[in-house]
Every structure is written in C-alpha cells, then in structure tokens.
C-alpha cells in the first residue's frame, strides 16, 4: 500500500497541486498583515487591531477549510474511474494487491497531502500573526476538526469516483457541499424566522446528507474565544425552540457522526470498486 500512497503523492506533485499550497500560503501571509496595514494607513486603537487580527484568523481558518477540501476533491474525484478510463490502472490492477489496498492507498495519499497542506497553512497563519505579537493558539485547537473537511469531501469524491468519471464525481461532491452550505446559511435562518416546518426538515435532512454544518460548529467551538463580541449571539427574537434550531448546541456525538459518515462513505466506495468490472 506504501507504493500506492507514494504514487498518489507523486501524482499530486505532477498535477502541480503544490502550487495551490504555495498560493494559499502567500494569501494567508498577506491576510494576516491586513489589520496592521489598516492600522498604519487609517490609525485605530490597539483593541481594534486585535479585533482585526481575530477576524483575519477566523477568515484564515475558513480559507484553510475551503481550499483543503477543494484540493482533496480535485485529487480524489479522478482517482478511480478516470484512471481506469485513461489506462493508468491497467498495469497496476493485475499486480498482487487487493483492490482495497489500492483504494485505501489512494485515500491515504490524498489525506496525507491534505493534512500536510492544512498544517502548513495553519503554521503560516499562526506564525505570521505571532510575529506581530498576537499569537492565536485557537487555530491549532481547531486544526484536527479542520482536517475533517478534506477527509469528508475527499472521501465522498473518492466514493463517487469509484463509479463516475472525474468531472461528474467532482460535480456531485460540490453540489452536495453547496446544498449543505445553502441549507445551513440561507434556509436555516428563513426556516427559523418564519417557522416553516418543511424548510426545517430540509435543513435537518441536509445535515444528515452531508454533515458540513456539524463540522462548522465543531471548528467554531474551538475558535469561539476569539469571536468578535456580538458575532455569535442569538438573535433577539424567536422562541427557545426556534433559537435552538437556529444555533444548535454541539453534541458530544457530533464528531462521532462525522467520523462514521466518513467511514461509511469510504466503505461504500470500497465495496463498489471491489465489485465492479474494470476494463
């Protein structure tokens, strides 16, 4: 399996995925210095500067979440069917290795690449705010949960790639993500404000379909301490039930559900790849 992991990493390098790593590193570095640039250009108190750093860190964590997931989708969506169609697996599959070894090798390769990326990006963000005298250890606490983003999306894309081509597998993964995002950011407030049961059920369903909102809450719980005042407060309206729907409390089983979801997606993809004809 080690050969497949190494091959997947080499393939990622061949596809210039490291350029994405470098671009995001530069972007995070630039982002972290924006509050200082604003302070120097327009003045402002030390409190406002700290607030600016906090916002930069929160936005930086969002960037890390987003781009590590995007890279994982790009690398996983073309890992199975597309490689079969291109003929890359024609000489590898007859080798004495089980299909699950090939599948897991590819998954581990992408996960390793994503983990290195997200860690490097977090290190860059942390170091660049730390040298300005504003270390924010919260982003390191969030990192294990941030790593679940590429794991979630990469696993889903890989499972779809076991029977779909690269573009369709990416499209479905992105569509699932978009549905979860739309449902959490737009449908949820509407469903809560107008108390529409059907919309509330759709939001609930989307969370089961792709636990992105759960994952968002897990990350948020780690960076809560640096949230600017009022940013995460409950709105001044609605019953307790509505408010609970609008801002669900983090359950101890949430992270287990995300883990089970990833494991189940991995298993489904594995079974499809194991049972399908390859030619």
């Amino acid at each position: 399996m080690g050969v497949i992991i190494a091959l997947t990493l080499k393939e990622a390098i061949r596809r210039r995925a490291f350029l994405g790593t470098l671009i995001i590193l530069v972007a995070l570095y630039g982002l972290s210095f924006l509050p200082r640039a604003f302070k120097e250009a327009f003045g402002g108190s030390e409190r406002q500067f700290e607030l600016g750093v906090n916002l930069a860190v929160l936005f930086g964590v969002d960037i890390i979440k987003f781009f590590s997931a995007v890279l994982a989708i790009l690398l996983c969506a073309g890992a199975i069917t597309a490689e079969i169609e291109r003929g890359y697996l024609a000489a590898i599959l007859p080798r004495p290795l089980h299909r699950w070894e090939l599948y897991l090798g590819k998954w581990l390769g992408v996960m390793l690449f994503s983990a290195v990326n997200a860690t490097l990006w977090t290190a860059m963000l942390w170091a660049s705010v730390a040298i300005q005298g504003e270390p924010r250890v919260e982003m390191w606490r969030a990192l294990p949960y941030v790593l679940l983003y590429p794991a979630l999306y990469g696993t889903l894309a890989l499972a779809l790639s076991s029977f779909l081509g690269a573009s369709i597998a990416s499209m479905f993964t992105v569509a699932a993500g978009a549905f979860a995002y739309f449902s959490d950011h737009f449908l949820r407030p509407i469903a809560a404000f107008f108390d529409v049961k059907l919309l509330q059920q759709i939001v609930w369903l989307s969370e089961w379909t792709l636990p992105m909102a759960t994952l968002k809450r897990l990350v948020q719980a780690q960076v809560d301490a640096i949230l600017p005042p009022g940013m995460d407060d409950a709105p001044p309206w609605g019953s307790e039930a509505v408010l609970r729907f609008l801002k669900p409390e983090l359950q101890s089983l949430d992270v287990i559900y995300v883990g089970i979801y990833i494991a189940a997606a991995l298993l489904v993809g594995l079974v499809i790849f194991w049972r399908r004809d390859v030619q």
């Binding site: 050969v3 003929g87 890359y88 024609a90 000489a91 590898i92 007859p94 290795l97």
Partner: peptide, 28 residues
C-alpha cells in the same frame, strides 16, 4: 502473472528505472 495491456497510460513522470522499481515493489 505478468501482463502487458493493449491500452495503457503509464505514469510518464517516472523514469524507466523508477517505473520498473514501482512495479517490482507492487509485485512484492
């Protein structure tokens, strides 16, 4: 078993030696 497929696309970013080493390792 050794197999040469009719339609194939090898990992062309590898050198001939690296490519054979990879297949040798896959063959344990």
């Amino acid at each position: 078993l050794g197999f040469l497929p009719e339609k194939f696309q090898f990992h062309d970013f590898l050198t001939a030696e690296e490519f054979l080493r990879m297949h040798g390792r896959l063959a344990k």
